[in-house]
Design a protein around this nucleic acid. Structure first.
Lengths: 136, 136
DNA sequence: CCGTATCCTCCTCGATACTG
DNA sequence: CAGTATCGAGGAGGATACGG
């Protein structure tokens, strides 16, 4: 037991990243990717590279600022690549990296979950608010 | 073709929820669940009901305000139940509903992805920032 | 033990205007 | 086409104090 404890402690230390801990860097990464724009952008890149304006069209209502900001953040984190073709006018393509591709299915699952469960959620909200009103 | 178009249009209308559309209610639901506290709370409820203070202990650093606010939101949306045992002192347990349980694996997957990829993300950030500095 | 209420600060995000 | 720059409103979220 005692001999294994030391080995286990080392094993623990090696995978000590835990988003439950406030000062673990994974907590910040979690809040960065827990973002609706991240989910929508990664989903929009599912079928291959997209140009900037394509993304803007797919993700209706996104402001230039948020789209650019999200893409820059994803690029910096190594989740997407940005490829500039120096034509006139310039053409910029965004694509998923292998790491981005590994996150994409998860983010897309959230999007799909939202689309699949919105009606049930809205029903739950009505019920909750009705019960709340009946209280008075 | 023409006869199928009408049928297809109806089919489309029935599953017309699309988070890519700005004014689709799923867009709001997506941003509600794309939240680090939601991910952490749902993950913390994976192994069964938890008391309020248990959750506060598991999710280190969460303020009472955010924890309560997140739990209320999840309760209203029908993802968790809140059970009060009127003892002294009062005991409150939170648990996943079936709908909450259906979302949990996805949110937990994000948490796990963050923990598994933090080192690679940090490496990508360093590389990005280094290239940025070399530019000058 | 499980909250609610209030204040206050930062930071997100949209709108708008301009550039290579 | 694909951004950058700037401003300003509003909400997120922490700290603190108090209540059932």
């Amino acid at each position: 037991m005692a001999t294994r404890t030391a080995a286990e402690r080392r094993a623990q230390a090696k995978e000590a990243y835990d988003a439950y801990l406030a000062d673990c860097p994974t907590r910040d990464l979690l809040s960065r990717i827990s973002d609706k724009w991240v989910g929508l952008v990664l989903s929009a890149l599912a079928d291959g590279p997209r140009r900037y304006n394509e993304l803007a069209r797919i993700i209706a209502g996104v402001s230039q600022k948020m789209l650019t900001q999200t893409l820059r953040s994803l690029e910096r984190d190594g989740l997407v690549t940005r490829t500039v073709t120096p034509s006139v006018p310039v053409r910029v393509d965004y694509a998923l990296t292998p790491m981005g591709e590994s996150l994409r299915p998860v983010m897309q699952a959230i999007k799909h979950w939202a689309e699949a469960n919105i009606e049930q959620v809205e029903a739950a909200r009505s019920a909750y608010d009705r019960a709340d009103a009946a209280q008075e």
